[in-house]
């Protein structure tokens, strides 16, 4: 058995007395994709913030490599190899891809006080790392991030995290804002990271995307873990019904259809 890389034990988080998360226990192993499913407001964002060191849990513990850890800041989590990529890639639209890739980790050249940011190397590495993840359209590190598509920006952020040694990759709704083709590309990259032995926490409300790549699944409802299962143990309908709060999606869909009526063409 492979030991879990990241483990949460009964983690709770409350803001001003109201519980955002209650007693969540999760674990993710190297080379595995853990899908966190939940509707809007289920507590996914809070959980991500706890995992990435933005919030400290009110109670419960976090273990990395079997050792108990307290994250004082995102930097602490980052130092242990936990990297978070946000929905819009956490990138800077008006910066060049090379500057963005190396932000906070700039390679420098020259002697003090004339240390300078080695933009040439930065550009070469950025282009090379993006090409590894299948983005061949970017050939120039000085291109502005804002000129990339949503999928390319996600790829840039993931490539950055992997390049700087991420062992746990937390992806916050990476496919939600993307078209079908780009979402597929991002899913492919998730599988690539998984194959490299990275533990991936894939946060989404899209059941199809989750089922395409997930090894293990956890469903959050109102800050509580409502269900937990491994690949193949649930059908898509079961998961959607659960996420919608137990109401049968099929019944809702039927009601919706009766309200809208048959579509009329002009």
């Amino acid at each position: 058995m492979v030991a879990p890389l990241l483990k949460l034990n009964d983690v709770s988080k409350s803001f001003a007395g109201s519980n955002a998360l209650s007693e969540i226990s999760l674990e993710v192993k190297p080379g595995e994709v853990l899908c966190l499913l939940g509707d809007n407001g289920a507590g996914k964002s809070t959980l991500i913030k706890v995992l990435s060191g933005v919030h400290k849990p009110t109670s419960g513990t976090i273990e990395v490599d079997g050792q108990q850890r307290v994250f004082e800041s995102p930097k602490d989590a980052g130092d242990l190899g936990i990297a978070t990529v946000h929905q819009y890639g956490g990138t800077f639209p008006l910066m060049s891809v090379a500057r963005c890739f190396f932000v906070g980790e700039e390679p420098t050249k020259g002697v003090w006080p004339f240390h300078y940011f080695d933009k040439k190397t930065a550009g070469l590495i950025t282009v090379q790392e993006m090409q590894k993840l299948g983005i061949t359209r970017v050939t120039d590190g000085s291109r502005l991030v804002g000129s990339l598509s949503g999928g390319e920006r996600q790829t840039l952020a993931i490539a950055r995290a992997v390049y700087f040694g991420a062992r746990v990759l937390i992806l916050d709704e990476p496919t939600s804002a993307l078209g079908v083709k780009q979402a597929t590309h991002v899913l492919k990259i998730i599988m690539q990271a998984r194959a490299q032995g990275i533990a991936v926490v894939f946060v989404t409300h899209n059941v199809m995307h989750a089922m395409a790549v997930g090894d293990q699944f956890a469903v959050l409802i109102h800050g509580e873990k409502a269900d937990e299962f491994r690949k193949g143990e649930r059908t898509r309908e079961q998961i959607t019904d659960l996420m919608a709060g137990g109401e049968a999606m099929a019944a809702l869909e039927a009601e919706l259809a009766s309200l809208t009526g048959p579509v009329r063409l002009p």
Partner: peptide, 21 residues
């Protein structure tokens, strides 16, 4: 310099800049 990069990143998105260390 790298500080220039920090300045651009801070102005671009302070939250992401902080997350990047």
């Amino acid at each position: 310099t790298k500080y220039g990069n920090w300045i651009f990143a801070t102005g671009g998105d302070a939250e992401s800049a902080r997350a990047a260390g």
